[in-house]
Amino acid sequence: MSQKIVQGVPMPGWPMRAFKGLVLLVFCAAVIIPFVGVISTSVAPNKQINESGGLVLFPKSVNFAAYESLFAGGVVTRALFVSIFVTVVGTLLSLTVSCLLAYALSRPGFSAGRPILLVVLFSMLFSPGIIPTYLVVKGVGLLDSIWALIVPTMVSAFNVIVLRAFFMNLPNEITESARIDGAGELKTFGYIVLPLSKAVLSVIGLFYAVAYWNAFFSALLYLNDSKLWPLQLVLRTYVINDTQLGSAELGTELLPPQASIQMAILVVSIVPILIIYPFLQRHFAKGVLTGAVKG
């Protein structure tokens, strides 16, 4: 399908191709081997894990006890639903608000553009403390509400700035011609800019989704009832209670969980991302060659 372009370009010589292949292979192996360890450990018998010091590459037998105990009691299942809700609703809201803001900031004639952009930019450089933020969240009545996981973090300054850069990168002629045709801002934005920005939208959407998916700290501070806790916070209690950070600070008894459960946690928290990733990847990993066919 990409022959058209390939014909014009000489294929690189074999040393170059071999070099590229080798680099990729080494990189991929460096990721795959530990991951095999993670998955193997999650299904290996505890005895073997202890005897091998924590990580197992080749399990002697396979059992799913770690997953069973993880899902026993329904804590993880409920947290999974909370996380899915927060991620889906949060990402949609974030994308809407951020795109509108980024689009406004990308318009060359926008009179308030520069001050607003600086407001956005400097918010990246100064981070407010957790206590004042808590007081604000409390003040607007979001405590103990699931919206506390979405509203305070709805806009990421980084994402807005990146979106704006991509919007500005669109060929000027297109938006200008739309304007000459009498299209208003809403039309230009909805019918011209957004469809041309699928790649960056899926990337920023993914950034937001992953941020929502991984967030735990707001839930820890703002939600007193563990019923509303998202997956990452629930899973964290299995892993974090065990670091030197925590145990040294508080004089509490340590009850660290088995390594198999920790690894199962990792698998459980990655699977949803594994599922949605390919759908989004289509949009940004298309690359030049397939893009060319369309053009």
Partner: peptide, 29 residues
């Protein structure tokens, strides 16, 4: 209302600052 060992100091401090302490409070020595 629970927090893991690592994060309890933050949780504790924010609730103290927010003035909404529960009836019974675990206070680290």
């Amino acid at each position: 209302s629970m927090a893991s060992n690592d994060e309890y100091p933050d949780k504790f401090a924010t609730r103290v600052a927010g003035g909404d302490l529960p009836d019974i409070i675990n206070i680290p020595t």
